[in-house]
């Protein structure tokens, strides 16, 4: 199989959990560079599973996944993890900030987890810039427990983008936030205008948040249907 110029490619992917009878089949999904794609669908339709497959967290039973021409599904876990931390930004449904680190240190966490990245002065400057852009600069020295839900979410988003990733995967990044704050968070993810914009794949069950996205993919139970033709 030859990779295309698309940033995210899933080809003939099949995945099922060991327990239960859920399975997901993706004949083909291609997301171009800089494209912003929203995944929607009812609960249990496989949105998060698809995101995990695309990010290389789950290994498909069949087929292949390419991220920026890197055949992530064919690589060993250690190489997949190394690729993820260096080139991918992740935002999770559960905010998953480390309670024992300050906001600033949470933002710099990817630098501490990767032997190839260093939390140097440049990274710290970037953390400050991002925090200012997200409106959380005043919280940099506070702990997550001292933040509001909206502030925590913005910290999680800033953490996902601090290493200037090529691709961002976001799983329900707005959680249980109120509509106004949700809109701000999604805008923060979507409108990061810094030259070459990263590709964004976001899972949400809220159709109102998909405005401004290039494409919305709706998942049905155990198979994929797309409301727009796949690009690639």
């Amino acid at each position: 199989m030859e990779p295309t110029q698309a940033k995210v490619v899933l080809q003939d992917v099949r995945f099922s959990y060991r327990e239960g009878n859920f399975s997901l089949e993706v004949p083909e999904l291609k997301i171009n560079a800089g494209e912003k794609v929203a995944l929607t669908g009812p609960s249990g339709s496989g949105k998060t599973t698809l995101l995990h497959l695309a990010a290389g967290i789950f290994q498909p039973h069949r087929g292949a996944v390419w991220l920026d021409q890197f055949p992530i599904s064919q690589k060993k876990p250690i190489l997949r993890r190394r690729f993820r931390i260096r080139h991918i930004g992740m935002v999770f449904q559960e905010l998953e900030l480390l309670e024992y680190l300050t906001v600033k240190e949470n933002l710099l966490l990817p630098y501490r987890l990767s032997p190839e990245l260093r939390p140097d002065k440049l990274a710290r400057t970037r953390a400050h810039e991002l925090a200012r852009h997200a409106g959380i600069e005043s919280t940099l020295d506070r702990y997550p427990a001292q933040l509001s839900q909206g502030e925590r979410q913005r910290v999680a988003i800033c953490r996902a983008v601090i290493t200037k990733p090529r691709i961002i995967f976001a799983d329900e990044p707005t959680g249980n936030l109120d509509p106004a704050t949700s809109g701000q968070c999604v805008a923060l993810l979507r409108d990061r205008g810094e030259g070459a914009e990263p590709t964004l794949m976001m899972v949400t069950h809220d159709r109102s948040l998909t405005d401004g996205f290039d494409r919305v993919i709706e998942l049905d139970q155990s198979f994929m249907t797309m409301n727009k033709a796949s690009v690639g």
Binding site: R84, P110, L113
Partner: peptide
């Protein structure tokens, strides 16, 4: 456990 899962998803090596 959830903290470790997050770190793993982000890409933290198992040894770390």
């Amino acid at each position: 456990e959830s903290e470790f899962t997050t770190l793993r998803k982000i890409g933290c090596a198992r040894t770390r």
